[in-house]
């Protein structure tokens, strides 16, 4: 099921192959090369320009991409800084935008850990959980042997993060040079890529419902409260989708 996500999806590898860790790491790096990686690269270029317009210095902007590693949270933090928010207000706003990383990480851990993967290693690897790597991992991990999964994910995450830091620098450097239509088209790429790849990854009724309800419910809640709309849209929408999926599953 991962074949359509990247041309060299690791599902083509024989599942019984015994590769050294370095081999799995490189396979993860290779999985980052492709459409998902390109789209992330393009949309991160957009972030570089956005941060420069907000008045952030280059070094800090690069640190934000590598250290936060979640585009929506980076945009929220940049916006907070530009608006002159207090440290506490910025922390709260960024935290709210990042709550989704908790269930995303929790959902991927049971697939990611091998028989001897230490807790510390998982804590370090969790830094790479963000939408692009998450979607790729959720669709590819199950076709990989357990002992190779952590190394594969490390390769994928490091390659995506490294390329994104370069993309941020390019966007920062080129900001103001791009015509508005082009810079807008770059920013537009992220939600479109997320939408299309999540729809492709959602195979069960529950996942499809969660996607559809989240898309509609979150902006509706946002009409009343833009600070917690993500939280409510996710919790209520996901729970609703889960319950409907269970009831329909039982009826079948």
């Amino acid at each position: 099921m991962s074949a359509e996500f990247s041309g060299d999806a690791p599902s083509h590898e024989p599942a019984t192959s015994h590769r050294p860790r370095g081999g799995w790491f490189l396979a993860g790096v290779r999985a980052a090369v492709g459409v998902p990686g390109l789209v992330l690269f393009a949309s991160t270029v957009g972030f570089g320009g956005f941060a420069r317009e907000a008045g952030l210095p280059l070094g800090l902007t690069l640190l934000m991409t590598g250290g936060i590693w979640a585009l929506p949270s980076q945009i929220v933090l940049t916006g907070s800084i530009a608006a002159g928010s207090s440290l506490v207000a910025a922390f709260v706003a960024v935290s709210l935008s990042a709550v989704r990383l908790m269930p995303m990480t929790a959902a991927i851990m049971p697939m990611l850990r091998g028989p001897r993967t230490s807790r510390l290693r998982l804590l370090v690897l969790s830094h790479f959980v963000a939408v692009t790597a998450w979607v790729l991992a959720m669709t590819s991990l199950q076709s990989l042997p357990r002992e190779g999964r952590a190394a594969w994910f490390a390769g994928l995450g490091l390659a995506l993060a490294g390329a994104s830091v370069v993309a941020t620098g390019l966007g920062y450097w080129g900001a103001g040079e791009l015509p508005p239509v082009l810079s807008g088209a770059l920013v537009f790429m992220t939600p479109v890529y997320f939408l299309v790849s999540m729809s492709g990854a959602a195979r069960s009724l529950t996942e499809r419902l969660a996607l559809a309800i989240g898309l509609v419910l979150t902006p509706l809640v946002g009409l009343f409260d833009t600070a917690t709309d993500l939280l409510w849209g996710g919790l209520v929408g996901g729970t609703l989708a889960f319950l409907i999926g269970r009831v329909v599953g039982r009826a079948r």
Binding site: V187, E207, T218
Partner: peptide, 30 residues
């Protein structure tokens, strides 16, 4: 885990909706 996945998926869907409906930069003029 099924519930956690559903909530994570709905949360990401919410992020997508917000990026489409309330973008930054020049895209906001469309």
């Amino acid at each position: 885990l099924g519930w956690v996945r559903a909530v994570a998926t709905a949360l990401v869907a919410g992020v997508i909706a917000k990026m489409l409906l309330a973008p930054g930069g020049s895209l906001a003029t469309t």
